[in-house]
Design a protein around this nucleic acid. Structure first.
Length: 576
RNA sequence: GACUCAAUAGCUCAGCUGGUAGAGCACAUCCCUUUUAAGGAUGGGGUCCAGGGUUCGAGCCCCUGUUGGGUCACCA
């Protein structure tokens, strides 16, 4: 029986599937298919003079078809791009039997199917490099129609643009929107370039726990889960800082990790609950060294990606060429507000906020207030890469105090296009200071700051054994990818951004219907009529239901024997 | 979380003051020894997001909800 849930096109495709099988063609063959080149290689290297590529074999997805009698053109898309493929009836079927062309190719194949073709490369009358097919193989039949995107000379018509569908069904997005693939290959290239640089210097790539008993290293709300065997709560990591520094204590001179971190906070176009961060720690260095290291790293990434240090983000052209401007936080605030906050007490700072019309909260400590002023007044102006240095001590509990001013810390953030990209410290390695800073965090927490850090006593203990002077840096990979590829939304640099689950409609099993005396064949019809549950059927007028389902039977040519009106009355009676 | 916009055919979208649901592509059938968004002709395809309300009558107006987008808040 016809499946009433399927669209007409899906039904046709399932029929084609059966037809293929009847002709002895397996629509999902198991054998490997040998490929000896790619669309990209053919298009870039084919030369009619040389007459090369005369025995090619490639595989890919059919993206469009133009069938004209005994000759047809197909666009085949492989991993690297698209190439036109020419099917000529008498080449495919040199003998009397024309089934392979007339039936298999013309009728049973569709846009979206994956096939392999063998043939020779030539240039058509219109000048397009194409493959003249002598043999083709069905590799996978597609039974759901793809969104059809047409393009001509780089212009796209009827693009597949609905963000919801693009993110939920990323595979479709990747198939029909080629530029999407590009963003993700660049993302990988960014990480590979960084890895290369770190490995060249002998730093070790490591892995640290994602499930942590104490979520440390950052101020953020964690996800919480539970371990059954230990019967303890575990947190998904919000940062890997404290574990990596333990490894420096343990004697590694340089360690780094590309890690997924998780924060149970809001979602928007720059925040996803899970995101990727790279953190690196190098012994015997300070934050001045780390600034140079960061400059070199970003310059190298930009060059690897674009062959230049200049990158366009929105309307701004950002130049990642080193060196970057360095401004202390106090100077940055002075620069953009005219107010010198150095040495101010909390009360004075609160007044500054009032004067500048910056909203702050009772629970805010001094550090957080300064951060608010900076974030509100200075940060948005930092378009070209700028190191903001020397943050107030209250907002950097893991960072060493500034060598010249104990109110400040040796910390920098790199701002790009008005956003924070990197965060780095001369790491705090004084265990007694570290414990005091944790205790200050606890006070903030008691004051109502729900992002204040937890105390990790084992980390303090590690420091007590002695950690070499160390500098550490963290960089958001998603954000970096956004900058480097010109994407404005984090969802465009994550393959599978977090989405609310699709709502599934509740529907009763067929058995629930048959219990009422409804023949099994009619269950699908009743559900098609909109009554997915028995409960929904309870108050239906039998006459209306009878008419509706007989109508569906007729319209879809199901060939079922219609029930009598009395039958329908009894079904509904039976519910009660 | 607040405000706001959107949801109509497989896809992209139209739909007038509220009066029988449309186009292009895709799909099907037929014709065609044929080339670039695209050969021609004909045809099928709809729970207008869901549920209520107003109305003689709702894709359209009102309310509630769902999902998504945008802006803002929150997010070192």
């Amino acid at each position: 029986m016809m499946n009433l849930e399927l669209s007409e096109q899906e039904v046709f495709r399932r029929q084609s599937l059966e037809e293929l099988r009847k002709l002895g063609i397996n629509p999902y063959p198991g054998a490997k298919y040998e490929v000896n080149t790619s669309s990209e290689e053919i298009l870039s290297k084919f030369d009619p003079e040389k007459n090369n590529f005369q025995e090619v074999s490639i595989a890919g997805r059919i993206m469009s078809r133009r069938i004209m009698g005994s000759a047809s053109f197909v666009e085949l898309q492989d991993d690297k791009g698209k190439i036109q493929v020419y099917f000529k009836r008498d080449n495919i079927c040199p003998n009397e039997d024309k089934t392979l062309y007339n039936t298999v190719f013309k009728k049973l194949l569709d846009i979206g199917d994956i096939i392999g073709v063998k043939g020779n490369v030539f240039v058509t009358k219109v000048g397009e490099t194409s493959i003249n097919v002598t043999e083709f193989t069905v590799l996978s039949k597609s039974i759901k129609p793809l969104p059809v995107v047409k393009e001509k000379d780089g212009q796209t018509y009827d693009a597949f643009t609905d963000p919801e569908q693009r993110y939920r069904q990323r595979y479709l997005d990747l198939i029909v929107n080629p530029h999407v693939k590009d963003v993700f290959t660049k993302r990988t290239k960014i990480m590979n370039t960084m890895r290369e640089m770190f490995n060249e210097r002998g730093y070790l790539e490591v892995e640290t726990p994602i499930l942590q008993p104490i979520p440390g290293g950052a101020a953020a709300r964690p996800f919480i889960t539970h371990h059954n065997a230990l019967d303890i709560p575990l947190y998904l990591r919000i940062a890997n800082e404290l574990y990596l520094k333990r490894l420096i204590v343990g004697g590694f001179d340089g360690v780094y990790e590309f890690s997924k971190d998780f924060r149970n906070e809001g979602m928007d176009r720059t925040h996803n609950p899970e995101f990727t961060v790279m953190e690196i720690y190098v012994a015997y260095k300070d934050y001045n060294w780390m600034m140079e290291f960061t400059e070199e790293m970003l310059e190298r990434v930009a060059m690897a990606l674009h062959g230049t240090t200049k990158v366009k983000i929105g309307n701004n052209e950002i130049d990642f060429k080193a060196p970057y401007r360095r401004v202390t936080m106090i100077d940055a605030i002075k620069e953009h507000t005219g107010i010198d906050i150095s040495g101010m007490k909390e009360e004075q700072l609160r007044k500054v906020c009032k004067d500048l019309d910056i909203e702050i909260d009772e629970t805010f400590g001094k550090g957080k207030i300064i951060d608010e002023i900076f974030g509100e007044k200075a940060e948005p102006h930092m378009i070209q890469p700028t190191f903001i240095t020397d943050y107030p001590v209250e907002m950097s509990p893991l960072c060493k105090k500034h060598r010249d001013n104990p109110e400040l810390t040796e910390r920098f953030e790199l701002m790009v296009n008005g956003k924070e990209l990197c965060n780095a410290y001369t790491e705090l390695n004084d265990p007694i200071d570290q414990l005091e800073r944790f205790q200050d965090q606890l006070k903030l927490s008691e004051k109502g700051d729900d992002e204040a850090m937890f105390i990790d006593m084992d980390f303090v203990r590690a420091l007590e054994y002695g950690m070499p002077p160390t500098s550490g840096m963290g960089i958001g990979i998603d954000r970096l990818t956004m900058f480097m590829t010109g994407q404005e939304s984090i969802q465009d640099v994550l393959f599978f951004p977090q989405m609310r689950p699709e709502k599934k409609e509740k529907r009763d099993d067929a058995s629930a219907y048959t219990k009422l005396g409804i023949p099994e064949d009619w269950v699908a019809v009743i559900q098609k009529a909109g009554y997915l549950t028995i409960d929904g059927l309870k108050d239906v007028k039998p006459g209306a239901l009878h008419q509706k389902i007989c109508g569906i039977n007729k319209k879809n040519k199901l060939g079922l024997t219609n029930p009598s009106q009395d039958d329908v009355v009894s079904w509904i009676e039976n519910i009660k």
